[in-house]
Amino acid sequence: MAEVKISAELRKEFGKGAARRIRRANNIPGVIYGHGSEPIHVTMPGHALFLALKTPNVLIGLDIEGKNELVIPKAVQRDPLKGFIEHVDLLLVKRGEKVTVEVPVQTEGELAPGGNLLEHVLNALPVEAEATHIPESVTVSIAGLDAGHSILAKDVELPNGTVLAIEEDAVVLQVVAAQAEAPVEGAAEAEGAEG
């Protein structure tokens, strides 16, 4: 995964009013923590951060007033109605360090004919990987699977250097039989009354 470069400034004002002023200036407040260090409060350019966060578990090279830090997003708070980023928690990482992250699960192929449904029990798979080699996603083949089949965490093929951070027998995907629609109560009575 490529490293995204973003510049940041140290934040000196705190509280709701300060956060609102930061967001009005098209910036995003954030905090960096990890490695036992004191939290660092920063302000980052909103558009650059928004684009970077489109990639899950993106590795960000943050230039904080001349000091470079490697970080990954840990928590992103968004406005519940508009979806705007309101605040970001970032985790300090070092090259070669292992981190536990959730990687999106993608599927390929078609289920067996019959109108069955695919249930995503886990939309993201917890894995441990080197901070600079976090996979963007994992792909699972569902080709020809029929009702009753399940894909377990141990069945998911992971890139080299990546290991599961969840029980091997955890269900990731399962195929469920399509439910036949039951007649609506009262519909038959209404038809009888019409006749």
Rank of each mutant, 00 (worst) to 15 (best):
G66P: 12
K94L: 10
P113T: 02
I134Y: 03
P135R: 14
H120P: 07
E3D: 07
K154D: 08
Q106N: 13
G144K: 12
L49P: 09
D79E: 10
K154Q: 13
P80A: 03
I28R: 06
V140E: 05
G15T: 03
P56V: 02
D146W: 00
G46H: 05
E130N: 11
G192R: 12
L92M: 10
K67G: 02
A180G: 04
G61T: 06
A170P: 01
V121P: 02
G36A: 13
G34Q: 11
E119G: 02
I40D: 07
N27Q: 15
E168C: 06
F14K: 14
G161D: 08
G96D: 12
H120D: 06
E119V: 07
P135K: 15
H120S: 10
L152I: 03
V76D: 07
A124W: 02
I28K: 02
H35G: 11
E110L: 11
V88K: 04
L10Y: 00
L91I: 04
G17L: 12
T139Q: 12
A48F: 01
E136V: 07
A187E: 11
I28V: 12
G61L: 13
V171M: 05
A129N: 01
V138K: 04
V176L: 11
M1I: 10
V156M: 04
E9N: 13
L111F: 03
A170C: 03
I40F: 00
D63Q: 03
T55Q: 15
G96S: 14
E119F: 00
R23N: 10
Q77F: 00
A178L: 08
L118F: 00
T132N: 14
Q106V: 07
P104H: 02
N27T: 06
R11S: 06
I22Q: 05
I32M: 14
A178R: 15
K74L: 01
